[in-house]
């Protein structure tokens, strides 16, 4: 459907000099295609279910006034604070989904970006349009990043809703022990969601690069998710501490530093720098591969 629009829509535009308006049209059609897929909707549904599960579980466990996890401090970050303030469910849900659920969803979408089109035989039709390969690649990357943001916001909004329904809201205590108002807490929650979304940029670029290497969408998705799992495991092995700071997932949990007072920026800055580096390296590698590749499907 949108493939056809994409191919016929720009009729009349000069060869090789597509207007920015046209790029927006391509982006819009890509976004619509991506977010209309059942696969994408199912992924978002799973992500939205995680906070519900965590919230209900904590609610049932603490119904009789006992503390979460027996007070041992186990489980995902912030989970013990949920009972004081429902807003903490947002942070807990993001901490619970960031190591695996969120990047897995991003890996599926990013891996599918180019290879999926090639697999379905639609890639060459997309390239017939006067967008050029670079522009198509950028559009695909922008779509993937939009998915990162939407997926994170789905988790955050679902968590906020569940948190507000099941737990009290109000002024909250930061992990440094100081108090901030609920409005500021909401602001920080939004900031944290943005940081979490930005944490996925590196993986999105990696997935896009993998996607240009193969013509099989499944292979690209499996490779990306496989890389994610491998890196997550390697990040746990203490003997590898020398290379761990260069893993894209190494500083993911640093988003929690936004809940300190004053905010501790070291890890956050390192995380964003690392994501930018991954985006630059694998983005340009994807460009080098995609613009030089023979498109046979």
């Amino acid at each position: 459907m949108s493939r056809a629009e994409a191919a016929t829509g720009p009729a009349g535009i000069d060869v090789g000099s597509a207007s920015p308006l046209w790029t927006l049209g391509l982006l819009r059609s890509e976004l619509v295609t991506t977010f209309r897929r059942w696969r994408t909707l199912a992924l978002l549904g799973v992500l939205a279910a995680v906070p519900i599960l965590v919230g209900v579980a904590v609610r049932i466990e603490t119904r009789d006034g006992s503390s979460v996890g027996g007070g041992g401090g186990g489980g995902p970050a912030f989970i013990t604070q949920i009972t004081n303030n429902g807003l903490f469910l947002v942070f807990t849900a993001l901490a619970a989904t960031l190591p695996f659920f969120l990047p897995m969803a991003v890996g599926v979408v990013a891996g599918d970006a180019i290879a999926g089109e090639a697999n379905a035989g639609t890639l060459r039709y997309l390239l017939v349009a006067p967008a050029g390969r670079t522009r198509l690649l950028l559009t695909k990357y922008a779509t993937t990043m939009a998915f990162c943001l939407v997926a994170t916001l789905v988790v955050a909004v679902s968590a906020l809703t569940v948190g507000a329904l099941l737990f009290p809201l109000g002024d909250l205590t930061t992990i440094s022990g100081t108090q901030i108002s609920f409005a500021e807490g909401l602001g920080r929650a939004l900031l944290i969601a943005l940081v979490v979304a930005a944490s996925l940029i590196g993986l999105a670029a990696l997935g896009l690069f993998v996607s240009t290497l193969t013509n099989s969408g499944i292979a690209a998705m499996a490779t990306t998710v496989g890389l994610l799992i491998t890196v997550q495991i390697l990040d746990q092995i203490p003997q590898l501490h020398a290379i761990q700071p260069y893993f894209f997932s190494h500083y993911w949990l640093s988003f929690a530093d936004l809940m300190r007072e004053p905010v501790y920026w070291d890890g956050l800055v390192k995380n964003l720098e690392l994501q930018a580096l991954y985006a630059a390296v694998f983005g340009s590698a994807a460009w080098a591969r995609f613009t030089a590749k023979d498109i046979t499907a």
Binding site: S67, V68, G71, G72, G73, A77, F78, T80, Q81, N84, A95, I175, S176, G177, L253, A256, R260
Partner: peptide, 23 residues
Amino acid sequence: SAAEYSLIHNGKDVWGYDSKSNE
């Protein structure tokens, strides 16, 4: 990691707050 232990001395109070276990 994602938690903090604070020891606060303010006037005559000494507070210890472990955010991980919320104690």
